[in-house]
Amino acid sequence: MFRPSPSLQVRHPDLIMDIFVQQLVNSLSVASVTILIGIGITLIFGLAGIVNFAHGEFLMVGGMATWFMVGTGMNFFVALVLAGLLVGALGFAAERCLFRFTLNRPMNGFIMSIGLSVILQHAVIRVFNEFQKSITDPVGLVWTIGGVDIIAMRAIVVAITAVIVAITYFGISRSRYGMALRASVSDRDTAELMGIPVRRYVTGVFIYGSLLAGIGGALMISLFPITPFTGSVIIIRGFAVSLIGGLGNVGGAVVGGLVLGLVDGLSAGYGYPEWTDAYSLVVMILILVLRPQGLLGGTLGPKAS
């Protein structure tokens, strides 16, 4: 699904370095979407204790909503914000109506999220259709920096992701809300006794993660065409990213996303593109088996029951 853009064709066979840089920028923009979904999953899985298999579908719904809104003539960046809010609201509804009731039975919550993902996927097919959707490049500029062509939209995607990552990272590690959140993860009962509204925090984290998925979906459709089935592919990458980095660890998700995005982007450019999806799967299985707590360490997620 992640193909190198047409601008990456070899024009000067001797300028291998230029092509490498282009591939790098390309990979970074791919990594951005992966990082956004990875952060959402790492927060929801690691901090709220919910394994939401429908998270990829949330991203897909965000992308489809953006496609629809841009189709009605709306500005892409307005549509991006609206898609984020829409998917955030979807997350709120899902948490209140479904996951709230399975907080102490994570396995049931997991199975339920599979049901939710099936519903969302086919609801989108029902409302639109199963064919792939794309929008025209909302910026439509190409910057040439030192002989390297960079598609402006890709750089903007990277920048937006960087801002979101910074906000999330400092929100979790520095603000009192982040501190309260981490307290409720390490000891829910004590945190509750200290007057932290743990349930509300769980809801809050779920909404925030969903919002990121919505924005990720909007960014994704600005780079690649998406189909109603995109969600079930991207979810695996999201889990890979969050598990590589360590659950609940925002920095880890960024590292995981970069590693995976680069491996994907470069393998699509240089290696065997038909095996691209397999790399992330193999990496994830290895990490899960060898270092279940992730490379950078994190929570082990909700206790299995």
Binding site: P106, I236, F239, W275, A278, L281, G301, P302, A304
Partner: peptide, 29 residues
């Protein structure tokens, strides 16, 4: 099943899902 000896619950579920996706990729290629 070997990973179940090390990781349990959802981690194992995710591994099985990865295996399933890998299996399809291998068959297709």
């Amino acid at each position: 099943g070997l990973p179940t000896l090390r990781v349990g619950g959802q981690h194992y579920i995710i591994i099985t899902f990865c295996f399933c996706a890998l299996f399809v990729i291998v068959l297709t290629n």
